[in-house]
Design a protein around this nucleic acid. Structure first.
Ligand SMILES: NC(=O)c1ccc[n+]([C@@H]2O[C@H](COP(=O)([O-])OP(=O)(O)OC[C@H]3O[C@@H](n4cnc5c(N)ncnc54)[C@H](O)[C@@H]3O)[C@@H](O)[C@H]2O)c1
Ligand SMILES: NC(=O)c1ccc[n+]([C@@H]2O[C@H](COP(=O)([O-])OP(=O)(O)OC[C@H]3O[C@@H](n4cnc5c(N)ncnc54)[C@H](O)[C@@H]3O)[C@@H](O)[C@H]2O)c1
Lengths: 265, 265
DNA sequence: CGCGATTTGTGCACCTGTTCACAAGCGCTT
DNA sequence: AAGCGCTTGTGAACAGGTGCACAAATCGCG
């Protein structure tokens, strides 16, 4: 399957810029109204562009970039056209300024401080993840409720107690948090984070968080992903079995090809 | 934000049942054509239903289940209506048969065998993840290329060398694999998995995999999720700043309220 | 300097998915 | 048995997203 699934099929609606006070503002030239679907693809374009830059390219065609990002080229062009024009007809896109523009739009000029709460099995792995730093983020704080874990150094940064959340979130100006606590603790921790000033949460716990409107929540759930794959496996085998039966029927009837053709026509 | 984002906004298209040989088959009564968006939400409904069942409920209204799953109730009803009718007007849905039906559709009756490749930082955490087992899957094999890791026991299961992939995938009838190798190795490993018979891959490496049409690939990328959140942070602060400026302008002009009202009208 | 090859940017038709709003159906009560 | 309140299931309108197909723009070359 060359068109790859990347998360978030559900519940997207609306143009991202068109928020409450937009009547006063219109859509600023420096901050266009982007379709949510486009926003979700920009990071993938950015990754592909960085890869191309590293492998010595200066420009890339929509076809080439689309291939590298796993989308179709018309979609890619339309997405990029929302950012303003960074391509040259007959040539392609200049990689460097395009990278700059996407990074600007995504708010990655300044390295964003991120807090990670719940330094268990998963949290440990995340805390040690290099791609975190290389793609625009800085783990500014680790928190856990377990006192035996507090003080532990991971990747050079000390685990602090969740009681310190208000203080640290303020002093480090943290607006994004990653939640890797057990499901049962997630809502309470999220509430504390929001109270401390966090406005975006990436939630790994398998629960729906109930938070104020203005807080952005994204959810990653391994089991959900596997279950979707499982559905497709089930479908494939069900179809296969039915197909086999149909073919058997056809063969018994004596003219399988005609049967196929008839029904299809 | 009460409407939570759950992954996969991009590139979904088409009704899931309507695949190549469907002309012969029609849509089977036991395997309805589900919209892809619906499929992506079923796991969330299932999780919510299990939770409700555990907390002593027998039935639930669309409103209640929608709340627990973080969607709106009309959407939920439409989704469930695709599975056939499991609700009673005036009452709600019977939890037990509904759970059964969703599990059947998702192919979770039999516990599916999953292989995990790349037992590093992240792979370790995944291998030890309890939610794996509790939500319909069984880690049937762990693989790594690093010989010093081969033989290591994780959660009672031994790490094997990737050279054993063909043999083990066959003997354990594995159709789903989780890929947690470095990006550079991912494509090659994916090719090996597919050659061995794997038909669904959950990819944690930040690369687009190029695989045959009939292989389902889903991708989870932490950095992408954070970058989407970063975009929203950027937007929020840009809007905030513009709003402040607009208000300041209004105040200087002498009639901020009128200005606001005028432009909005 | 003009022409052909190339590639972007986009209008448009199509399609999927969401949401509203309400008729139909069910059970409980009187 | 009829009425009433509640909740499902769905038709229909709408919104958003996708992809085709082509005109417009640019480059390189003769
Ligand atoms: N491990 C995985 O691969 C994996 C995969 C997908 C999802 N998840 C989810 O991620 C979460 C964490 O999984 P895990 O395997 O790391 O679990 P874990 O039990 O190993 O780690 C949880 C950590 O959270 C800490 N914690 C508990 N209550 C807390 C609180 N109130 N505040 C702060 N910290 C608290 C614990 O002390 C522990 O360190 C779970 O919700 C799990 O379902 C895990
Ligand atoms: N650690 C995280 O939190 C995290 C988060 C998101 C994404 N990722 C991605 O997940 C992948 C793994 O991350 P990690 O931090 O665990 O890296 P890691 O280096 O700790 O682990 C990688 C493992 O893969 C093994 N490996 C290397 N080549 C292999 C091959 N050809 N076949 C089989 N195994 C092979 C290595 O021996 C090692 O055990 C990376 O692509 C990373 O970008 C990691």
């Amino acid at each position: 399957m060359s068109q790859q699934r990347t998360g978030h099929e559900a519940g997207i609606t609306g143009r991202v810029g068109a928020v409450t006070p937009s009547a006063v503002l219109g859509s600023q030239p420096d901050f266009p109204d982007l379709p949510e679907a486009t926003v979700a693809r920009l990071p993938e374009y950015l990754r592909a562009l960085h890869h191309l830059a590293e492998t010595g390219h200066d420009t890339v065609s929509s076809e080439g970039l689309a291939l590298a990002a796993g989308v179709n080229s018309a979609k890619l062009r339309k997405d990029l056209s929302h950012l303003g024009s960074y391509g040259t007809r007959g040539v392609g896109y200049d990689i460097e300024p395009l990278v700059g523009q996407i990074e600007y739009i995504l708010g990655l000029n300044k390295r964003r401080a991120v807090a990670l709460v719940g330094v268990g099995n998963l949290g440990h792995a995340l805390a040690g993840y290099a791609g975190f730093a290389s793609r625009g983020f800085r783990i500014a704080a680790l928190f856990d409720a377990d006192l035996t874990r507090v003080g532990e150094l991971i990747n050079g940064i000390a685990v602090r107690h969740i009681g310190d959340i208000p203080e640290v979130v303020k002093s480090e100006a943290i607006s994004i948090a990653v939640l890797a606590t057990p499901a049962g603790a997630a809502q309470a921790v999220a509430d504390q984070l929001v109270a401390a000033g966090v406005t975006s949460i990436l939630n790994f716990a398998p629960v729906v968080l109930n938070l104020p409107e203005q807080v952005d929540v994204r959810k990653v759930d391994l089991a959900v992903e596997l279950q979707i794959l499982s559905f497709h496996e089930h479908r494939k085998s069900a179809r296969g079995a039915e197909l086999a039966k149909a073919m058997a029927r056809g063969a018994v009837n004596g003219s399988p090809v005609a049967t196929l053709g008839e029904v299809a026509a």
